[in-house]
Amino acid sequence: MRNRGIELGVGIFMLAGAIALTVLAINVSGLSLAEQQGSYKIYARFENVGGLTARSKVTMSGVAIGKVSSITIDRKKLMALVEMEINEDVNYLTSDSSASILTAGLLGEKYIGVTTGAADDEILKEGDFIEDTQSSLVLEELIGKFLFNQASE
């Protein structure tokens, strides 16, 4: 009957491994199987992306609708070119939407917030650009501006 004990032990071991992986997947990484859906790519140019990184969230009204997939420099316009993957079911972003780089809390991570414009405009498709963008707030610039205003008054 020593064999049964061994088999039982190995069974428990395997089960513990599977449970651990499931817990990690669902509780820790928040993976849900329904999330496995397609996405389309849209682009936006920013003056300054300061602190935004690949894999940052793209949100609309605070709800995640996609993620940043890459950040490069647009050689012609010399601006940051951000590529975003937007979930396929978000098919209502109009071409006059605006994208701004926001900060979660005072010291939190950077993310992109998208706001739609007038309702009956053209819908954004794969490869389109969001023209209306607002760059990341840079603390030094803000302070500079504030001092300049103070001085001119």
Partner: peptide, 15 residues
């Protein structure tokens, strides 16, 4: 086979 399983257990228990 064992080491990845042990690693998962370690992570889960650690968290």
């Amino acid at each position: 086979i064992s080491l990845p399983i042990l690693t998962m257990i370690f992570s889960a228990v650690g968290i």
